[in-house]
Design a protein around this nucleic acid. Structure first.
Length: 176
DNA sequence: CTGCTAATCCCAA
DNA sequence: TTGGGATTAGCAG
């Protein structure tokens, strides 16, 4: 997917400490075929579960909580810390994605509503011909007939919309 | 310095 | 391919 790699990992890798702290049982592999390969730890169900529980209570840990949790789970503090960092990051990502979906739906319904209103306007126009030369479709605009006053309201609403939804809105709707 | 986020790496399933 | 543990850079306090 993402192939553009700025900043390829500088291979000046010192002796990394792969397995800090006591890793949970059954992790003594030796398939270390020569190279500098990152050991992949898998947390046990219990560890994940407990981490998850404490994350629900608190998305960040005090140093003491971190220490206690690490001790209890037989993980290093660093691992607990990293777990929480990743958890926060991915939680935020998920939230953003959901918000994006919501915004898309909202935009869709707004477009649909707009479409219906346009049709309604057309119908009303057809019903009541002439004598309405100066009639515009928007009541708000209708209110200010004399001055070229502000559509500040409309501008603001537009601003709100565009700032909140940063997705590709191709057809910026023709409101008023 | 410490702790966090964002970006990315990269292994195991 | 994906999920998720780990690393790195850079910023804030």
């Amino acid at each position: 997917m993402r192939d553009f790699d700025i900043n390829q990992t500088p291979k000046t890798e010192e002796d990394r400490e792969w397995m800090i702290g006591a890793t949970p049982h059954v992790n003594e592999d030796d398939s270390n075929s020569g190279g500098r390969r990152r050991k992949k730890l898998r947390l046990t169900k219990e560890q994940s579960h407990l981490l998850e529980e404490s994350f629900i209570q608190n998305h960040t840990l005090t140093p003491k909580q971190k220490k206690d949790l690490a001790t209890f789970l037989k993980l290093s503090q660093r691992q607990v810390e990293v777990w929480f960092q990743n958890r926060r990051a991915r939680s935020k990502l998920k939230h953003t994605e959901m918000e994006c979906e919501y915004l898309k739906r909202w935009f869709g319904s707004l477009k649909e509503q707009n479409r219906r209103l346009q049709i309604e306007v057309e119908e009303l126009r057809a019903l009541k011909p002439s004598s309405t030369s100066a009639l515009t479709m928007c009541p708000r605009c209708e209110r200010v007939t004399d001055a070229v006053d502000n559509d500040s309201n409309a501008v603001q609403e537009g601003a709100v919309l565009s700032s909140r939804s940063r997705m590709t809105i191709s057809s910026s709707s023709s409101l008023c």
